[in-house]
Amino acid sequence: MNRIKKIFKLVHLALWTLFGLLIVLQLNSDEHLQWRAVTAGTLLTCMYVFYSHFYLLKYSAKRKKRDYFLLLAGIIVTGPIPFVIFHPSGFASAGAFQDYYLMTLVTAVPVFTFLSWLARVTENLVLNTVLKEQLEKQAVQTELSYLKSQIDPHFLFNTLNNIHTLVYKQAATAPEAVLRLASLMRYMIYESNAPTVPLFREITYLQDYISLQQLRYRKHPIVDLEIKGETASIAIAPLLFIHFLENAYKHSPSDLAPGAIQLQVEVRENTLIFRIRNPIGRNAGALQESGGIGLPNIKKRLQLLYPHSHTLETDENDGHYTVLLKIKDLHIQPHERKDHLLHY
């Protein structure tokens, strides 16, 4: 907002400088002998009328209309005085004073009264538009933060339940599960606070989650993960895919065959394609349990983050549920890979 106000000040300065130069050029072309005094008087009159009315309009909303019109009348009546004072012939006679006063009152005063009103309306319009955009952006960021804050408890609740089961059974994999969870939390707490993250970090986050879930199974990996394209150069909003993967586990049969859940992440130029397919279990009558926040949450985030550049399709067929998400027009950004503590 301050930057916009500074721009307006520079515009005022530039226009008044240009206006003064035009007056000087006009008077010099007419070979006016007193061009300095006339230029000073003209500029002072015009600036007095302009800025008196300009700032009167700024505070007129807090005043009664009667006060505004009384002050405006005072500005109009006193407007020509600087020009008459500086004009060499302004006080030569009563007739000359009257002529110059009336001439200025009829010409310069109305014009710059109108220009000051136009400038105030323009400035208010621009400032209000910028303020509205800032408020809308702030509202979107607030809503995104709220939606994002819902992810952590929802995810942690399910994960801690799994770890509790391992600890209760005194399973040898329990310590590893704790380290896996620590790695996930590190990403969620520190890295996911950024507006965007490298796609490969989001994929690594999914891989950590898959490894944590795999501790529940003694079979071969039940998730078939396929990655295509250059994932290091694409940046996306964090924590977009975790609910799709979590729902795939939650709503699949308890006895999963190796590779039963098929997960594909593909990058084609500046388009990201995310696809996940899982068998439907008995408890998958609805993808979202009562009071759940996963799928509605991610849909809302996608609408806020990528309103015109994403498509989300779901399909239930042949005993399988498929989610297909496409995000196009992603910016290609260079990211430096970093080593992360507790990352496996």
Rank of each mutant, 00 (worst) to 15 (best):
M185V: 03
T196P: 07
Y59N: 12
M188V: 06
R36F: 14
I210A: 09
Y68W: 12
L330W: 02
K58R: 14
A14Q: 06
Q207Y: 06
E136H: 10
F274T: 09
K338N: 14
T142V: 14
S183M: 02
L160K: 04
P238G: 02
V121H: 14
L206W: 00
T78W: 02
L181F: 09
T322K: 05
I75E: 00
C46P: 13
T39R: 04
K299Q: 15
I298Q: 00
V267T: 10
K219P: 01
Q288C: 11
A61E: 11
P153F: 10
A232E: 11
L44S: 12
V265P: 04
T45L: 14
L10K: 02
V77F: 11
L118G: 05
F200P: 01
Q34E: 11
R268Y: 12
I276G: 05
A73Q: 03
L212Y: 07
I280A: 10
R275C: 07
H308M: 08
K300P: 01
L13H: 04
G74E: 03
L272I: 02
M103E: 14
Y217E: 08
R275M: 05
L325G: 00
N124F: 09
I280N: 00
Q26N: 12
A108P: 01
M1S: 10
L135P: 06
H335C: 05
R301T: 05
S183P: 03
T104I: 08
L22F: 08
V265K: 01
W16N: 02
H343Q: 15
I81L: 13
F112T: 10
E336M: 13
L33S: 10
L166R: 06
R277P: 02
C46W: 04
E336L: 15
H87R: 01
L239V: 05
E289Y: 04
A108H: 15
K219N: 11
L127F: 10
K299R: 09
S211A: 15
L256P: 05
H331C: 10
I236G: 00
I203F: 04
V11C: 08
I75V: 13
T322S: 04
I23V: 13
